[in-house]
């Protein structure tokens, strides 16, 4: 049995009867998901205005509370008095809709990659990816694992890499500073890059995720 069959009934279109006896056609793939591919959104043509907006984007990094691997342990101290990332405009958000930074904190198993992609795609343009630890660069100590990915930027566009195993919270803060510098310089356009090279990213993702049972784009 293929894994897809497990959730097939959920995706099949069906007819549901309401309490009044009315028959309603439900097609989850059309009703709940958007079939469109992501669009590229060009920056504002007024350079001065765009650099002002980029300043605001850089000074207000809302990080999605999404922990993968061992690196998420290093994110928690960021919010404590010792490191206090709030000083730099870094705040945690619980939902992908409201955040503009996703941190892939360490090794990414194939199972988690699926969730990471879904969360990343639900974030709104412009959005930034920070890759933490050597596992996201070349697989790190899990380079020959059967179940983790080796290079993160094959699956989603990465803005900033932080090297180390594990990087200290100070390294994370330095990474945030680097990300701010990139955004202020107008180089934080990776969300558009993802939209423009959507097929390539999708093909890579599908190559490694065997039980692909979600829509192609999860907006």
């Amino acid at each position: 049995m293929e894994n897809k069959d497990f959730i097939k009934p959920y995706y099949e279109s069906k007819i549901v009867e309401s309490p009044d006896g009315e028959e309603i056609k439900v097609n989850p793939l059309e009703d709940y998901f958007c079939g469109e591919a992501p669009k590229s959104h060009a920056p504002n043509s007024n350079k001065l205005w765009e650099s002002f907006l980029n300043w605001a984007r850089a000074e207000s990094l809302w990080v999605l509370g999404f922990g993968t691997g061992c690196g998420s342990m290093e994110i928690l101290p960021l919010m404590t008095p010792r490191f206090d990332a709030y000083r730099f405009g870094v705040q945690m958000r619980p939902t992908p809709r409201q955040s503009n930074v996703i941190i892939i904190s360490g090794y990414l198993s194939v199972k988690t990659l699926k969730r990471a992609i879904r969360s990343y795609e639900q974030m709104q343009n412009p959005k930034y990816v920070m890759a933490l630890g050597s596992c996201t660069i070349n697989g790190g100590m899990y380079y020959d694992s059967y179940n983790t990915i080796n290079r993160l930027d094959h699956y989603m566009p990465v803005d900033v890499y932080i090297t180390g195993c594990m990087p200290r919270p100070e390294a994370l803060l330095a990474g945030f500073e680097e990300m701010k510098r990139l955004i202020k310089a107008g180089k934080g356009e990776k969300a558009n890059e993802y939209a423009e090279n959507f097929e390539w990213y999708k093909a890579n993702q599908k190559k490694i995720i065997k039980d692909w049972n979600m829509p192609d784009y999860n907006w």
Binding site: H41, L53, G89, N100, Q124, P126
Partner: peptide, 13 residues
């Protein structure tokens, strides 16, 4: 800053 940033998002769902 948060307010300006949220107004400056390019896409909405």
């Amino acid at each position: 800053i948060d307010l300006i940033k949220n107004y400056s998002f390019r896409s909405q769902i």
